[in-house]
Design a protein around this nucleic acid. Structure first.
Length: 566
RNA sequence: UGGGGUGUAGCCAAGUGGUAAGGCAACGGGUUUUGGUCCCGUGAUUCGGGGGUUCAAAUCCUCCCACCCCAGCCA
């Protein structure tokens, strides 16, 4: 790991682990990341991945990647592949510890048989609706199923026949016999096996009964020797049940479940349901749209695994549900890319500048530093000629206060090139500025003047004759509200708050020729603009760049304030 | 109205009886051939609220308030 990782702050789960080691209750830490293969991973999952794999790495233990594939109805192999890819991309290695709950189906079946034999489980033949009624409500206890007193032999026979495929879906389920009066609904004789005549993506048609999450998860953990089973808070109510199975079955290990709070991020959504809608209804261009908070989207956007890991360290691990500001994620990215991204010059909205006293027929090569933060990244050559493009926004005919870029009569520096002074503004028939006429100071080659005079502004530029054509895709927050789901609670559909300017495609951009032939996905900084990532196939013009995040823009802030202040 | 959780600055978050870390954001200032980076500085008489215990409380007790989760044969 070469990138600068923040030192991991103290949090309650790490404390528990340290205490377990100190108290000699723990020899080796074993954690697991247990996704269900029914969707794509997003930044919220990254928190769990970094926690589980990070802790294992920190304590010299191991972390398993286990797919909780207990529901064939909405699981698929394509998700397995994408999840593996995303976890690996984030920088974690599960080694040989890739597991599937479906690998344990036979063992799980045997555990269920065990429970029946001990009179701790029974086949219930109530319909789903009846089961719901018998369960009671939040404030009223449930009532025992009439099938609760079935004999062990009958239960054994029925359960075997369930497996045999003799019954239809919904006709019978296997339930743990716990306590219908429990104030914890999860303990009211929970279903542990149900009939599903569905083809499973890994076991095919081998099974027609499938274990439920509550039954499979804890026993899978135990089977793998997981020591600390970290999950999100909504499972806190399930812990008594988790412990119940562990206590009542002859399992090889006794994992400890610990819950932590989920994270939310401003200006986006993280629920599977909502993310799905964005894709289904075409509000975004697929799961890997660079505006999506999915790992595949962030990857396409130009995010680095290191930035995401740092971000996860920054937000910490606690028990209170948080709404983390997007600026934290953006900071983590800038911080990472500042040290690693090579610099280039690219003009988004070109304004031609003719340098009157620069000879028509010559051109020269100037030298640019690839990364001022890292000398080892070397230098590159920048062709310069009489006609160049600068950013239209870097010139004002009537400059506002504190504006120190180009204006009539003003002198500025062209980065790594020369000082130029604007001597004339040429307009077209509509009164629009068509081009600028400037003069340059031959003595200022490289960007500094021997007489020591200072210029306030430094502009990026490209040589008109040498530059490459490019398209910039500028991304902004996906929603106009920090918490679009809060608005939803007021009865407004969250899609109403999609930011219509979340994507701005800017054609006609000009970038420096050193960019010719760069690798797809290359992350770079366009100086004074932001961090970008080359999209798609490289080489062919126009080159397409996705903006990952803009550089901080103090001037934009000042200008906004000046305008508001009058 | 049952059970489980949470409440420390705009946001995230340490702190577990000895007098409120850190990060993001914001705001000042310095350096600067990126209005970037970097550096320096500015914030809680107070920890959801009220009582109480104590020489001493964000930390212990107590009452109250607010928010989140749970009634899938989803995970």
């Amino acid at each position: 790991m070469t990138e600068k990782e923040h030192s991991a702050p103290q949090h309650f789960i790490r404390n528990i682990i340290q205490e377990d080691f100190a108290g000699n209750r723990l020899q080796e830490l074993v954690t697991r990341f247990p996704p269900e293969p029914n969707g794509y991973l997003h930044i919220g999952h990254a928190k769990s991945i970094c926690l589980n794999f990070g802790l294992a790495r920190e304590f010299g233990g191991r972390c398993h990647l286990r797919f909780d594939d207990t529901n064939p109805l909405n699981e698929d192999e394509v998700y397995v592949d994408s999840i593996c890819r995303d976890v690996a991309w984030l920088g974690f290695d599960w080694g040989r510890h890739l597991y599937f709950a479906s690998d344990y189906y036979e063992q799980l079946y045997q555990y269920a048989v065990e429970l029946i034999k001990e009179d701790m489980a029974f086949v219930c033949s109530l319909s789903p609706e009846e089961i719901r009624h018998y369960r009671g409500t939040l404030t009223q206890p449930g009532t025992d199923s009439p099938y609760r007193t079935r004999g062990v032999e009958e239960n054994l026979d029925l359960f075997r026949r369930m497996r045999q495929g003799e019954f239809s879906e919904g006709s019978h389920v296997l339930r743990a016999k716990i306590d219908m009066a429990s104030s914890n609904l999860n303990m009211r004789d929970p279903v542990i096996f149900r009939i599903l005549h569905a083809r499973h993506h890994r076991t095919g048609d081998q099974w027609c009964i499938y274990p439920t999450y509550d039954f499979a998860h804890c026993l899978s953990d135990a089977q793998e020797g997981v020591t600390h089973s970290l999950c999100s808070q909504e499972f806190e109510d399930h812990r008594p049940l988790y412990d119940w199975f562990i206590e009542h079955l002859p399992v090889p290990a006794r994992p400890k479940q610990i819950e932590f709070a989920r994270m939310n991020l401003t200006y986006t959504v993280l629920s599977k349901r909502r993310l799905n809608r964005l894709v289904e209804e075409g509000h975004v261009d697929g799961w890997d749209d660079p505006r999506m908070p999915t790992l595949s989207g962030l990857r396409k956007r130009g995010y680095t695994p290191g930035a995401i890991r740092t971000f996860c360290d920054m937000i910490g691990v606690g028990k209170s549900e948080s709404l983390v500001q997007m600026s934290m994620l953006e900071h983590a990215l800038r911080d990472d890319l500042n040290y690693r991204a090579p610099r280039f010059m690219g003009v988004q909205d070109p304004l031609k500048v003719v340098i009157l006293n620069y000879p028509q027929d010559i051109e020269e090569e100037l030298e640019g530093i690839n990364n001022p933060e890292d000398e080892s990244m070397g230098t590159r050559s920048l062709p310069f000629s009489r006609e160049i493009y600068i950013e239209r926004d870097d010139f004002r005919e009537d400059p506002p206060k504190k504006y120190f870029r180009l204006a009539p009569g003003r002198e500025v520096r062209l980065r790594y090139a020369y000082f130029i002074t604007c001597v004339d503004v040429v307009k077209d028939e509509n009164g629009e500025i068509a081009e600028l006429h400037c003069t340059y100071d031959p003595e200022s080659r490289g960007g500094s003047s021997p007489d020591g005079r200072k210029v306030k502004g430094t502009l990026h530029w490209v040589s008109a004759r040498h530059c490459l054509e490019a398209e910039f895709r500028l991304y902004d927050r996906l929603f106009t509200k920090a918490d679009p789901t809060a608005e939803e609670k007021k009865g407004v559909d969250f899609v109403q708050y999609i930011n219509p300017e979340s994507l701005r495609v800017v054609a006609g951009c000009k970038v420096e020729p050193a960019l010719r032939g760069i690798e797809p996905r290359t992350r770079l900084q366009f100086e004074r603009k932001g961090y970008f990532c080359l999209e798609g196939d490289s080489g062919k013009e126009p080159l397409v760049f996705n903006m990952a995040v803009a550089l901080k823009d103090t001037w934009a802030k000042i200008e906004k304030r000046e305008q508001q202040g009058g």
